[in-house]
Amino acid sequence: MAIRKKPEMINQQVGWCGGCGHGIVQRLIAECCEELGLVEKTVQVVDIACAYWSIDTLNCDGIAGPHGRCAAVATGIKKVRPEANVYVHAGDGCSYVIGLAETCYTAMRDIPITMIVVNNGTFGMTGGQMNPATTLLGDKTVSSVKGRDEKAAGKPFDMLKILETFDIEYAARGALYDTKHINQTKKMLKKGFENQRDGKGFSIIEILSPCPTNWKMSPVDSMIKLEKENELIFPVRVYKDRGGEK
């Protein structure tokens, strides 16, 4: 039987709430970097949000970009150090709301970085405000106390549908609600890092993740909500795989 052990790249305890999906995402990133032998060359770019915990926990170079500007910071690092393995670990508020322009322009330039977006349907670290791009209709948050209303706040939108129309290498969405989907997500992340290693182009992987603290649910219930409700609006699949042809 295979031995399964925490990756050596993770050298401290994690700081996220109990049941948070960020911990699983961080482990998948560390496993992919170790399996591909990229740990020494890795530079992580994190967001000023929940993803910031991983700058202390992972034993590799890293920088925290201003909130929303992670893709732009990663573009700069990749331009001056083309041999580095640059990845962005950010949330949905950073990538799709505040930093939408940065995400779109990085995709437009087709910079060969790996962008990992953790979609938990809320602004987690600031206390659970409504996310215009990913909070589902009817979900109660601190800035939509009676549930999200379509007339007042519009509908959630599948942002990978926009990003797949750009000339990028890879766009896919994974989920974390059971072990099968976690293993599938790991394959997507590995593909993203391989595309970067081979210099193919921009890869974006969005991951559906629970936020039990701000959804005000138990971790087990929030995994059920993720499967029954969020996956209907945000389907788990590969949106685009260009195959290295430019």
Binding site: R4, K5, K6, V14, G18, C20, I24, R27, T179
Partner: peptide, 10 residues
């Protein structure tokens, strides 16, 4: 695979 806090070692 499931644990977000790396409690388990196999």
């Amino acid at each position: 695979v499931m644990c977000p806090d790396y409690v388990f070692t196999v």
